[in-house]
């Protein structure tokens, strides 16, 4: 769509009048604009992208947590340090018959449940 013709002259005058109105703002308004500008520009140093700061903080927290969990897992006490029980020593030092006994515990448990047989 074309712009209306013959508008250049009055548009130029309108722009000049608007420029003049913008240049002639009162001192109080200019002071407010000045304060607003400085506050906006000072903003990057203190408050720029708060989400980035939060994300960074969350990332550090996750990393610290991950390292802590990893260290906890790898530093867990080794089971070998548990003292041996007397029964364990028996098993280790026993002869083959004793080992058979332990291997057939189920059988002996079943045998005990059977009705008494004095000849058994």
């Amino acid at each position: 769509m074309n712009e209306p013709r013959n508008d250049e002259a009055w548009i130029a005058r309108a722009a000049a009048l608007l420029d003049e109105s913008a240049e002639n703002l009162d001192a109080a308004t200019l002071s407010r604009l000045n304060q607003a500008r400085h506050a906006a520009i000072a903003q990057p140093q203190s408050a720029l992208r708060p989400w980035a700061f939060g994300a960074g903080l969350a990332g550090v927290a996750v990393a610290v947590l991950g390292v802590a969990v990893g260290l906890h897992r790898f530093d867990a006490p080794v089971p070998a340090s548990v003292p041996l029980q007397a029964g364990d020593i028996d098993v280790v030092t026993s002869d083959d018959d004793t080992l058979d006994l332990y291997e057939n515990l189920d059988f002996y448990a079943w045998l005990e449940t059977q009705p008494g047989d004095s000849n058994g």
Binding site: A22, T29, A36, A39, A40, L48
Partner: peptide, 29 residues
């Protein structure tokens, strides 16, 4: 010019100043 533009829209210098300040903050951010 931003202030004048906002003033045409709001009919209020106070509102216009607030809007321009808000726009400055948003723009910089």
């Amino acid at each position: 010019r931003a202030l004048r533009m906002a003033e045409f829209a709001t009919d209020s210098r106070e509102e216009a100043l607030d809007l321009v300040q808000d726009a400055m903050f948003g723009f910089v951010r």
